[in-house]
Structures are given as C-alpha cells and as structure tokens.
Design a protein around this nucleic acid. Structure first.
Lengths: 173, 173
DNA sequence: CAAAGCACATGAGGCA
DNA sequence: TGCCTCATGTGCTTTG
C-alpha cells in the first residue's frame, strides 16, 4: 500500500505546461506572437511555482510530524497524510494528558516526602538531636503542574527537511 | 490577514463540472449519446467525490491540530495550514522535551527526599525513637522518566469535527 | 483492473 | 493591484 509517491517528484511538468492554456475561460488567445498571451502565461507560471512551494511546505511539515510520532505507533499504520495528522492529534492529546496527570502525581508525592522530612526533623529537634544537614532541592522550584505548562515556542527557522525546494522552482520567473 | 476561508465552502462546483471535459488528453469524446463518455464522466465524478472527502479529512485534521495548540501561541499568528503544521511540530517537540526533562528533575528530587527520609528514620531508630508511621506513596510506582514515555494511543474513532462531510459528497454516484 | 494517495494547474477570494 | 491561501478537478502512480 501507500500508493503515493516515495520521494519528491522532481516536478515533471504535467500536461498543461507542455500544452499551455487548455480551453481556459480566462487568459489570452494562444497566438504565435501575442504579448498578452506570453504575459499571462508567465504570470500563471509564477503563480504555479509559488503554489508548488506552498504545497511542498505543507507536505514537508506533515512528514516532519510523521517523523516526530512515537515509532511504534507509526510502524503499525500506513503513513499517509491523513493518518499522520490523525496520529499527531492523538499524540498531542496524549502528551498533554500525561504531562499534567503524571506531573501532578509526582508533585504530590514529592510534597508528601517533603512534609515527612520536616516532621522527622522536628521530632529529632525535640529530642535534642541533629541530623547531618543536607541540601535538598527546593520543592517550589519544581514547575507546578497545576499551572498550564507554557513556554515560548522555540523557533525552528523555516527548516525545509527536503532540500529540493528551491530547485523545483528553478523554472520560475 | 488570514486570506483563507472561514468555513467549509459548501462545494460550489467550479467551471469544469458545469462544462465537463475541457480539452483533456484522456476521456472519451463528449458526444450526446456516447456511453463511454457517460461512463468516464461518472467515474471521474466518483473519483472527484472521493478525492474531496480525502481533502476534507486532511483539512479537518489540520484545523483540529490548530485547536489543540496553546492558545497564546495560536493567537499571535495567522493560522494557515502551513503555520498550524509548523506550530504543531514545535509544540510536540516542546511537550516531549518538557516531559522528559521536567520529569527527570522531579524524579531526582523525589529520590533525594526519599533518601533523606530514610536517613532521618535511621537516626531516630538508633536513638530509640520512633516517628509516627506515615504511609508514603511508593516511589518506584512513579513512572520513570528515563524510559521513553509510551502508552497505547487512544483511539479517537474517525471523528470529523466539521459535520458537513458526507453532505458535500451528496452528488456522488 | 479498481482503489487510494498525491502533485499539479487553475480560478476564486480575501487582505495589504 | 499584487500577493497569498484555498478548494477543485484531473492525471499519474502504486498497491492489492
């Protein structure tokens, strides 16, 4: 399965480009020496190139998502755009849920341990004993899970995993 | 900004459907009573409908991702398909990173506190003292952050957030 | 061959 | 007006 293409299709210009202006409603008459026709054709080609860039970006992002998925999950399904996107939604939900609930669990556990430490230290102090002081990581420094975990989204500056993006548009302008 | 559409465009059949077979290289000759032409036309329509379903699914998934993003982050950018996908990649990376590193921090902190509790209890015991017993959450039960956090991905059985999916394909078959 | 996925060109439409 | 995003129809390719 996976009936799509395996790699970037390296832009083989389809029918309309070799045989321009197929009965379109707009555009000028395809005459041999018609400046309007050439102009429209160039404009369309530019538009097509930009549109292709846009599509490639979307495609690359989706593949990036697919790469980001848990490997076990991505092994056992056909990775097309649809399944990648669905799995990504599920994965984000799972990560968010896990983040909050596990962190809450850990946090309450740590708090109980901290309380226990203080309780024991009090008992020791009451009996005139002193335990060797020990530095413990301050508990409030632990990021609270009860607050929604946010942080500036790291900038991954327009990375384009597949390199043949501009080269595909080399026929542009 | 955001030059896209706001809602599902309710499928207004564009030029080619009202004016079928515009100088295509394939397909039969558009004659009045050509069974091949009708057959090809129906086949194409079916393909178009299915393709439309597929695209709607992809679109809905991307919008779902956009809904899943941290709201502050999604407020301050134009939500295109491209930006939604990019932000989703970043968000997943952020969630994963936060998950592991914060969980590791919490885990080591909890371990130190647990050690401290045992240390204090030992000192008490050596001096013939006993602290009131207190049940503490077992530390090994806390999921280890050093192991990659995995869990069966919850099934969100083919939910389609936007309802007008089949209705768009009502002209099918 | 049928089914499904994908990239493409193209026109519509919004926003600066 | 020009730029950008989008949805659509269509042909091509791969898988079963």
């Amino acid at each position: 399965m996976m009936p799509g293409r395996a790699q970037r299709p390296t832009f083989v210009p389809p029918t309309s480009m070799r045989n321009p202006v197929r009965g379109s409603s707009k555009g000028s008459i395809p005459s041999a020496d018609n400046p309007d026709f050439d102009h429209d054709r160039k404009k369309k080609d530019i538009h097509n190139g930009i549109e292709r860039l846009r599509r490639n970006n979307i495609k690359d992002r989706i593949n990036e998502l697919g790469l980001l998925l848990p490997k076990e999950a991505s092994k056992e399904m056909k990775l097309n755009k649809g399944t990648i996107l669905k799995a990504s939604c599920d994965y984000i939900r799972q990560l968010e849920k896990g983040q909050y609930q596990q962190q809450n669990k850990l946090e309450s556990a740590a708090k109980q341990y901290a309380d226990r430490v203080r309780e024991l230290e009090e008992i020791l102090a009451k009996n005139g004993l002193r335990a060797p002081t020990k530095v413990l990581p301050p508990l409030p420094a632990i990021p609270s899970a009860s607050q929604p975990f946010r942080q500036e989204i790291q900038e991954s500056p327009n990375q384009t995993p597949c390199g043949s993006l501009e080269s595909d548009c080399s026929t542009l302008s």
